[in-house]
Amino acid sequence: AGGEGPAEPGTASGAAGGPRDALSLREILCLYNQPINEEQAWAVCFQCCGSLRAAAARRRVRSAADIRVWRDGAVTLAPAAADDDAGKLGCSHYTETEIIESLGIIIYKALDYGLKENEERELSPPLEQLIDLMANTAEADGSNDEGYEAADEGLEDEGDAKRKVSAIRSYRDVMKLCAAHLPAESEAPKHYQAVCRALFAETMELHTFLTKIK
C-alpha cells in the first residue's frame, strides 16, 4: 500500500554521473529500513507545504516516491508523469485540502513504515493532531468548526495556534501548526530546512557506506 515496495536508489550518482541532488522519501525509508522520526515528519510537512504553496500545485501525493528531499533541505513533489492522476474528470486538478489530505496520509505511512498491520505507533499528541487534521480524520466536536483562520497573520504571533485549530484548509495552516510545534516559531523555516538537509545528507552517507560494503 502507498507504493512502499522496494525502491532502487541505484548509485549515488545522478543521471549525468554527478552527485545526486535529491532522494525520494521512499528511497530514504528503504535505505534505513525504518520509519522516519517525528521531527523529520514535522520537517517534511513544513517544507513540502512551503514548496506546494509556492508552486500552486494541483496534484495529489500518491506515494512516498512522489516526495523529493533535496540536498539543500527543500522538499518538493516529483513532477507528474503524463498520465498521472488523470482519472478525475480527465484532469489532475485537486483542491488544496485534497492535496493536504494525501500528504498527511503519506507522512503517516512514512511514520508507520515497517510496522505490522496489528501494530500502531504511539505518536506524540501534537503530531497525531496534525496528521488527523491534514488527513481530515479528526473527530469534529461540532462546536467550533471555523477552521484555522490563519489567513493574514504572521508565523511569529501564533503562540496559541495549537489550541485554536479545528480544521486545516491551506498549506499555510499546516505550516503554522508545524511552526507552533517549535519553541521559537520564527525559527521554523531555518530549523525545518536544516532537519531535511540532514535527512538527505545522512541518507546519502548511509547509501555510500552500504555501496562500499557491497
Binding site: 525504518q34 500502531e120 505507533r121 504511539e122 496528521i131 488527513a135 480524520t137
Partner: peptide, 24 residues
C-alpha cells in the same frame, strides 16, 4: 544518529492507523 525511537502499541479500531487505513 539516525535512530528513531518510538513506542508500538496494538492497533486500535478508533486509532489514527485505522482512520488512515479507511482513507486508502
Amino acid at each position: 544518529k539516525g535512530k528513531s525511537l518510538y513506542k508500538i502499541k496494538p492497533r486500535h479500531d478508533s486509532g489514527i492507523k485505522a482512520k488512515i487505513s479507511m482513507k486508502t
